[in-house]
């Protein structure tokens, strides 16, 4: 299977030089885009449509550190985006406690329409999200080049748990955002 990394001819690694990626994206777009073949036959145009669709998807995934991490994890066999993913049920107990605690605190703030409180929580959660992403990145880097061994299994699990938290924190922040928009309008 052609991966998003293959589209750009990059090694399958967490660290990506984003400005260089952007430049390459523009160059590839100039070559592949449907606008380049607007007068050509249907087959050429379909090819351009498919090629550019794949390019756009690859670019979107690789330029963003969070999406990139999720994608790498998926290449390691765990797809956290699938609703039925076993990995989601497999989160450690501390995490569930953390979720309950945050959930309750936010509900209270929202009930009281306490925007400053919600914002303060957002700042705290943002920091946790960053730390969790750092943890996932560390595990993903350690996996690069290494074989599947027992060590590898543990690293994948570590990345998966860290990204599970990232995902929860992201949703939490979206909720605060929505609450903020609602209270301001």
């Amino acid at each position: 299977m052609r991966t998003h990394f293959d589209v750009f001819g990059l090694p399958r690694a967490y660290d990506v030089d984003v400005p260089a990626l952007e430049k390459q994206y523009r160059e590839l777009s100039l070559q592949l885009h449907p606008d380049r073949v607007a007068q050509a036959d249907a087959r050429e145009r379909l090819k351009a449509l498919e090629g550019t669709t794949a390019l756009n998807e690859a670019f979107k995934t690789l330029k963003d550190p969070v999406r990139r991490a999720f994608y790498l994890l998926k290449l390691h066999g765990i797809d956290l985006d699938r609703e039925d993913a076993g990995a989601q049920k497999d989160m450690p107990l501390e995490f569930l406690e953390e979720v309950m605690e945050l959930r309750e605190a936010l509900d209270t703030a929202m009930e009281k329409k306490d925007l400053p409180r919600a914002r303060a929580m957002a700042t705290d959660v943002e920091a946790r999200r960053k730390a969790a992403l750092g943890e996932a990145a560390g595990a993903l880097r350690a996996l690069e080049g290494g074989g599947p061994g027992a060590d590898g299994q543990a690293l994948v699990k570590k990345a998966s748990h860290a990204l599970g938290r990232v995902r929860y924190f992201t949703r939490f922040l979206e909720q605060v955002d929505a609450f903020e928009e609602e209270s301001l309008s």
Binding site: L49, N56, F59, K60
Partner: peptide
């Protein structure tokens, strides 16, 4: 498909 995704997209 999220708003503001570059088109073409799928």
């Amino acid at each position: 498909i999220q708003r503001n995704s570059t088109i073409p997209t799928a």
